[in-house]
Amino acid sequence: MAFGKYTGWRGLTYRGGGPMLSFLLHRITAVGIILFVGLHVLASFSMQQGLGDWGTTINIIYESWIFQIFVFFCVIFHSLNGLRITILDFWPKLLKFQREILWLQWLIFIPIYGLAIFMMIKTGLSGG
């Protein structure tokens, strides 16, 4: 372990606050998107080539609106957070307002994601 000091229980109880939360969510959503897109490409390849039913099964799960709520969270959060990181890296003067920019990011994220899951749940519960 490279950072043995912060693993285990002390790692879990480390209070990093908002920046650490977005760092963790950035990694978790990254792995989520990789799993989703990788399996989806494999499933599409299987459907296209007729390699059995498993591709269709995976794509039916992916197309359900319940699963889309998670996927949409991953994509929107990862892209907005990545945009914030890029802007802060290319204009380091903005690092002075790091916390405010983080709040701004959540202020942009919540309406977009909230509207999307509202529409998904509304059409999902009324039968598509």
Binding site: Y62, E63, W65, Q68, V71, F72, V75, A116, M119, M120, T123, G128
Partner: peptide, 9 residues
């Protein structure tokens, strides 16, 4: 027209 989020994706 009448597109769900998954299709839009």
């Amino acid at each position: 027209l009448q597109t769900d989020i998954a299709t839009l994706f």
